[in-house]
Simulated scan of single mutants.
Amino acid sequence: MSILKPKRFWKEATPEPVENGWQVALDGRPVRTPAKRLMVLPTQELAQAVASEWDAQEAEIDPSVMPFTRMSNSALDKVAVQHDAVAEMLAEYGGSDLLCYRATHPQALISRQADAWDPVLDWAAQNLGIQLQVVSGVMPVVQSQADLTQMQQLVQQLDDFRLAAFHDLVSMSGSLILAFAAVRNFSETEYIWQVSRVDETWQAEQWGVDEEAAAQAEYKRQEFLHAKRFFDLSSPA
């Protein structure tokens, strides 16, 4: 059974200044979220990006090609109503961060993880005040309460829109530290994504590429890059 998509009913989508931010108007009618909230956006740049997505729609509306609109909806309908809970959930990633769990063999993989991950952990210690402990194997390592508290505070400081983007950066990479590295421009976003894929890249080199896994990885990569772009567009100049 096919699902009918809503039809385009407007001629022009335009960003407009409003109190406390910007909105997108479709022939003068403001866009609302699925929960019927007015979509008030924090910056003109983000409003322009959302307006461009609406303008790009043809006969039917296809939400799958409107990532800035989707994340704006998420920020307003989901994150804004449970900000503290979302921040707490994301901060918990730091207690079992990807970068802290290292292979026990072979040496080539151990070295590759160290080369990719140690510089990011060093950066976090110097710039975030977070000094996570590293362990070989899968046995859990207990991070200090001071570091756990610091991670919680840093995540809580993010506003609703940037927290929505941060959510995808963490969940796509599996690392709170890499998400912070992305939003604070430790390196190019593409490089940070590749750093999150050290283990998967190693496995593909040893056993060959699984097409289904590769397709899923590419989807996550695109979501990671989009989340960084959304974070930047949501940040006031």
Rank of each mutant, 00 (worst) to 15 (best):
M39C: 07
D97H: 09
E60Y: 06
S72F: 02
R112C: 03
K36M: 09
M39K: 04
A116S: 09
W54G: 01
E92A: 13
I110Y: 04
L98W: 03
W117E: 02
G94D: 04
M39T: 02
Y93G: 01
P34C: 06
Q44R: 15
I110R: 14
W54H: 12
M89D: 08
V81P: 01
R32M: 05
M89F: 07
Q48Y: 08
S64F: 14
L99E: 05
R70N: 15
A103Y: 10
A103T: 10
P63T: 09
T69F: 12
S96Q: 03
E88L: 05
A75E: 05
A85P: 00
Q48E: 15
L109N: 10
L76T: 03
D115S: 09
W117P: 02
Y93P: 06
A35L: 14
P67V: 11
E53F: 13
L76N: 10
A47F: 08
A103L: 02
R102K: 04
L98T: 11
P63Q: 06
I61E: 06
E45S: 14
H105L: 14
A108Y: 05
P63A: 07
R112H: 04
T43K: 09
R70D: 12
P67W: 08
A59N: 03
Q82F: 00
I110M: 13
P42G: 07
H105M: 11
S52H: 12
V40C: 11
D62P: 00
E60N: 02
E58V: 01
E58I: 01
A87D: 07
A59S: 12
I110W: 03
Q107G: 09
D55F: 03
I110N: 06
A49D: 06
V86E: 10
A103W: 08
T33L: 13
T43N: 06
Y93Q: 14
M89K: 14
V31A: 07
R37V: 01
F68E: 02
A103R: 08
L41Q: 06
E60W: 03
L99I: 10
R37T: 08
E45C: 01
M89I: 00
R102M: 04
A59R: 14
R37P: 00
D55I: 01
